[in-house]
């Protein structure tokens, strides 16, 4: 796997508590990488270690195979969780200031900014002071400042907090757009819905440790226990008899629209699913059958509680 960023055995402790305990992870180039975890798990500390805002006690962070340097940091796009904008400054000027700090010249910065402001529908705010903006508005400005210089690596800390669903969606689209244009995006969140929609890979951090890492597809498949939901018009008993020893019926059936019944069955991995389907087809009035994937939310909760298989 070609990884752009690699965190190796990072440990960080403050007086009295350990914030990161031997955390390692690999961020594939061109991916959208989610850092998940409950509040206080150490996500922000990890991001700050990557950014060299905090130094790790042990371990190292590699960018493109070399230990990350201060100069590398200056080229990363970083959006902190608590939005940092100068309150008294006007929006446009402030965005230009940050862009120039990141190395763009004034004209180029202004051109790109006008484009982005239009795109996110905030052109009217150019001359307003930051202190007059709402949290969500300020966040859009901050987002633009973060991505304006087109960094190859972007780090967002809780990018969706403070956004209404419409704007959160807008932001998701923009993040995916950035990935399509070649950027690698790391973001931390505890909003699981956003993870399913946009993340390719995740790392789940709990109590300062990396407890689960990998691609979203893979994790869901492994976590899923071969559970299927069958929609049919037979009785519970008929169905149980039909699958027999090949599968276990889970719980009671429940009625769904159109006079159909839905029943969940658990098929052990060594059984052939086609055999199950054929039996059901013979003996029941089968309408539909689908594999049930656990939601990331389930996985998150189960992983944190330690009940994930």
């Amino acid at each position: 796997m070609d990884s752009i960023l690699s965190v190796q055995h990072v440990t960080k402790s403050y007086t009295g508590h350990v914030a990161l305990d031997d955390v390692s992870l690999e961020v594939p180039r061109g991916s959208v990488y989610g850092l998940l975890g409950p509040n206080g798990a150490g996500k922000t500390t990890l991001i700050r270690v990557i950014n060299r805002i905090t130094l790790a006690d042990k371990g190292r962070v590699m960018l493109d195979g070399k230990e990350i340097s201060v100069d590398d940091i200056f080229h990363i796009g970083y959006m902190p969780e608590e939005r940092g904008l100068y309150k008294k400054m006007r929006v446009g000027e402030q965005a230009i200031f940050f862009a120039r700090l990141k190395g763009l010249d004034r004209r180029d910065a202004e051109k790109r900014l006008r484009h982005w402001f239009e795109r996110l529908g905030i052109s009217d705010w150019w001359g307003r002071k930051v202190e007059d903006l709402s949290k969500g508005m300020a966040q859009k400005v901050q987002f633009i400042s973060t991505v304006l210089h087109e960094p190859k690596l972007l780090i967002f800390d809780e990018p969706f907090s403070g956004f209404d669903p419409i704007n959160a969606n807008l932001l998701k689209e923009e993040i995916l757009g950035l990935r399509d244009r070649g950027a690698t995006i790391i973001f931390s969140t505890h909003n699981m819905a956003s993870v399913e929609e946009i993340c390719d890979h995740i790392t789940l951090i709990n109590k300062s440790r990396n407890i689960l890492s990998g691609s979203v597809e893979e994790i869901r498949r492994t976590a899923g226990g071969n559970t299927f939901e069958i929609t049919h018009r037979s009785s519970h008993e008929v169905l149980s008899e039909a699958v027999g020893e090949l599968a276990n019926v889970i719980g009671e059936s429940r009625g769904v629209v159109g006079g159909y019944t839905a029943t969940k069955i658990d098929v052990p991995r060594n059984e052939d699913i086609r055999e199950v389907i054929s039996r059901l087809n013979d003996r029941c009035e089968l309408r539909a059958m689908q594999e049930l994937m656990p939601s990331m939310n389930d996985i998150f909760i189960r992983a944190v509680n330690g009940t994930l298989k």
Partner: peptide, 15 residues
């Protein structure tokens, strides 16, 4: 600058 957290953005842009 410190309390408004602008500092986080600043130090990832300059020393």
């Amino acid at each position: 600058e410190k309390s408004s957290r602008v500092i986080d953005v600043m130090v990832t842009s300059c020393s």
